[in-house]
């Protein structure tokens, strides 16, 4: 979506939960490695609930927890 000059949503990535070790990289956000998909979903939900945030499921299987 194009950004109008007046539209400045303050997105903040709070966490990335992945299943692949090599994707655990540095950054401002918390990056967690899950053992399996079930655990990944639980972790994401717990973080999102605690932080009152939204969840994005990326096409590569990783989950982002972000706050708008």
């Amino acid at each position: 979506m194009g950004r109008e000059s007046t539209e400045r949503p303050n997105y903040e990535i709070l966490a990335l939960v992945t299943l692949q070790k090599e994707r655990v990289l540095g950054g401002k956000q918390l990056t967690l490695l899950a053992q399996d998909e079930e655990q990944q979903k639980t972790m994401v939900q717990d973080i999102a609930k605690a932080m009152k945030a939204d969840v994005v499921k990326m096409k590569n299987g990783d989950y982002l927890v972000l706050r708008i």
Partner: peptide, 9 residues
């Protein structure tokens, strides 16, 4: 939007 990443959402 793709903000509905969790099953609940």
């Amino acid at each position: 939007s793709n903000l509905l990443g969790s099953d609940n959402a």
